[in-house]
Design a protein around this nucleic acid. Structure first.
Ligand code: FES
Ligand code: FES
Lengths: 134, 134
DNA sequence: AGTAAAGCAACTGGAAAAGTTACGTATGAC
DNA sequence: GTCATACGTAACTTTTCCAGTTGCTTTACT
């Protein structure tokens, strides 16, 4: 799979599940559908479970299920659940650096935070059920 | 050096140079100052030269110099010169995919493009001379 | 008991980026 | 004219990040 694909995998899977909410799916099924590996699926969906978007059950007839109405799960929820930040934050450099570099960091970080915020806001305007035309 | 450091290196160097514009610096000096390698510096600054932000001269007493007044070089100029895009665009997936996935791509890509645009706009509001309190 | 699922930890492999080495080319000093 | 110096570039090496994989454990249903 390609780089930074966790978000793609998560969104794809949730959108798919939004089609028949309540239905249980195994990580193997999901992996096959998404062209990847069950363990990778569990890793990603595990994050979504921690965020309260999904539930999982072990054992026979276990699997994954939406924890909420698909209308109540936004793209931002998914984005935030995987704690990647798309707007690459060049986080505090190891060496504190001089005043010039410090000022630079401040300025750039400030802008990036703003941008990140507006990204989340925009993503929050769409639910996973809307995406599939539902 | 850490990942995705090209922008950091470029901004740091230009901000530094904005302190005494007109002065020539060698890639060795810059590399030493930034804690990296002259070849890496030349790679990064080469991009800035292509974008018309810097000039370089070979030979004895050669080196790098700002091509414009530091007031006329914005953070956006630098960002765009290195053609990385910070807002990770999950570009068209190899397999065209079904309608659900397609709709998803459309939606997300649209938002990301918007965000990228506003990032550049915001970065364009600050010049490298402002950053150093000049 | 047996089977099927998630959970988890550790290892493997490939790709991207930084870093390095080596050599060519241009330019000013002498 | 020669030499030192600096950029330009290509090729190679090293590092780092992640997806992918394997193997084992735990849980729950039949
Ligand atoms: S460390 Fe201050 S300008 Fe470079
Ligand atoms: S929902 Fe997965 S390919 Fe269409």
């Amino acid at each position: 799979m390609k780089r930074n694909s966790r978000l793609s995998l998560a969104l794809h899977t949730l959108s798919h599940m939004a089609g028949s909410p309540g239905r249980v799916r195994t990580s193997s099924d999901i992996a096959e559908h998404a062209g990847t590996n069950p363990v990778v699926v569990r890793r990603v969906l595990g994050k979504l479970r921690e965020a309260g978007l999904l539930t999982s059950e072990k054992g026979h007839a276990g699997g994954w299920r939406l924890a909420r109405e698909p209308q109540n799960i936004t793209l931002a929820d998914v984005y935030l659940a995987l704690d990647e930040r798309m707007v690459a934050t060049n986080e505090a450099s190891e060496t504190p650096a001089c005043s010039v570099e410090h000022a630079l960091q401040e300025r750039v970080s400030g802008v990036l935070e703003e941008i990140e915020e507006s990204l989340v806001k925009r993503l929050g305007e769409t639910s996973i059920s809307e995406v599939r035309g539902g």
